[in-house]
Design a protein around this nucleic acid. Structure first.
Length: 366
DNA sequence: TCTGGGGTCCTAGGACCC
DNA sequence: TCTGGGGTCCTAGGACCC
């Protein structure tokens, strides 16, 4: 039987930092911009379990975290380090398991064949020990013959635990869990389900009322099947590379004029275009987004007549789109902007040897 | 308390084509 | 003069995840 071990590195960014700062073990540690260094619009990226015990969690505004945990040690994020360590862990796992599927910077699925759940349990513990001793990182592992159940099990195993769910026990394992334990069920869906007296996964097993099915679309079928212990699993697509790439900027103070917003978009377009060019990626669509001061977000995009590379097309189209959004807003609510972003979509590798030939404008493809 | 930065997927309407 | 059904692409918005 094929099993999936869902490996999730605990409090990942904090754990990466603690490798270099063992003196901070057992203390509240927060990775994020230190609020004591001045007013900031930043949020917590990761908090140690000691900080979490005080109510701090990731995505929380740093000012609030600073009040909840005044004695916490703050560490500035170092994304290059986290990427490097993530690759280190994957390389380590590959020495023992050829079938790896990275899911995010701190999650990876390991596939292997086994029969008895006891065998899976000892495999999971061996893997956990390997990451602990060789990479010096704590990990939790969930195991199931279904990917999604392995994921849910790893969440329940945190921190530093192992949870094996045999196929016959899937429905019973899930039944008491809150609907929010399902990946894809966030605050909105949770509230919608609660409005219909659905609070646990088990309550969905008999099926959902028609009104909910309409609201949830195809997702309704998936979560009901899951609740019955028979999740629909699709083989993940082969590695296809990223579909889009974006950069954004949150202003220190909200912006109330078109020129400043437009200049910011041009600057972001340059950064994005340069970075895509370095990686040898072309793009076919450009979109921009603005977040207004009330946090509402609007977006506008264009598909280009042909694939482009480098910053030129982005720097031309992005400010134009931003000004369109701006003009529309001026005719209406006239809010100021707190964030602008530029995204390149429909990426594909540039054919080798053509990356620098501007004049080789190709006819539209697709 | 006042909300980062980077992504993915789904839906729905309209345009357009056969 | 009034009319089908199906498919794909484009665009905007929303929900969610790490």
């Amino acid at each position: 039987m094929r099993w999936f071990l869902w490996v999730d590195l605990d409090a990942y960014y904090v754990s990466c930092e603690l490798r270099d700062r063992p003196d901070l073990l057992g203390r509240p540690v927060i990775v994020g911009p230190d609020p004591r260094e001045g007013p900031s619009r930043g949020v917590v990226l990761s908090a140690s379990y000691e900080a979490r015990a005080q109510g701090v969690h990731s995505a929380m505004p740093v000012a609030q975290a600073g009040r909840l945990s005044p004695e916490a040690t703050w560490i500035r994020p170092d994304h290059a380090k986290y990427e490097r360590i993530s690759e280190e862990v994957r390389a380590l796992l590959r020495t023992k398991y050829p079938f790896l599927r990275p899911q995010s910077i701190d999650e990876v699925i390991v596939e292997f064949e086994a029969e008895a759940p006891e065998q899976v349990d000892s495999e999971a513990r061996a893997l956990q020990t390997m990451i602990g001793t060789r990479a010096n990182l704590p990990a939790s592992v969930g195991a199931s013959t279904y990917r999604i159940v392995a994921k849910i099990a790893s969440d329940r195993a945190k921190p530093a635990g192992v949870r094996v769910v045999p196929p016959a026990e899937v429905a019973a394992f899930l039944a008491p869990l809150p609907v929010r334990a399902i990946p894809g069920v966030g605050p909105k869906t949770e509230a919608l389900l609660r409005d219909h007296q659905v609070e646990t996964i088990g309550q969905m097993a008999p099926g959902l009322p028609p009104a909910l099915r309409r609201m949830l679309g195809s997702f309704a079928r998936e979560i009901v099947a899951l609740a019955r212990g028979q999740p629909v699993e699709v083989e993940p697509d082969e590695e296809t590379g990223p579909r889009s790439r974006s950069v954004d900027r949150t202003f220190d103070e909200d912006v109330g004029n078109a020129d400043e917003l437009s200049s910011a978009a041009i600057e972001l377009a340059r950064l994005l275009g340069d970075s895509l060019e370095r990686e040898g990626l072309m793009f076919r669509s450009v979109s921009v987004a603005v977040r207004w001061e009330d946090f509402q977000r609007v977006q506008r995009g264009r598909t280009l007549p042909a694939y482009q590379h480098g910053p030129a097309a982005l720097q031309l189209v992005a400010p134009r789109l931003v000004r369109e959004l701006w003009s529309e807003e001026r005719r209406g609510r006239r809010r100021r902007a707190r964030l602008v972003s530029v995204r390149a979509e429909r990426l594909r590798p540039a054919p080798s040897g053509q990356r620098d030939l501007d004049d080789f404008a190709r006819p539209p493809e697709d």
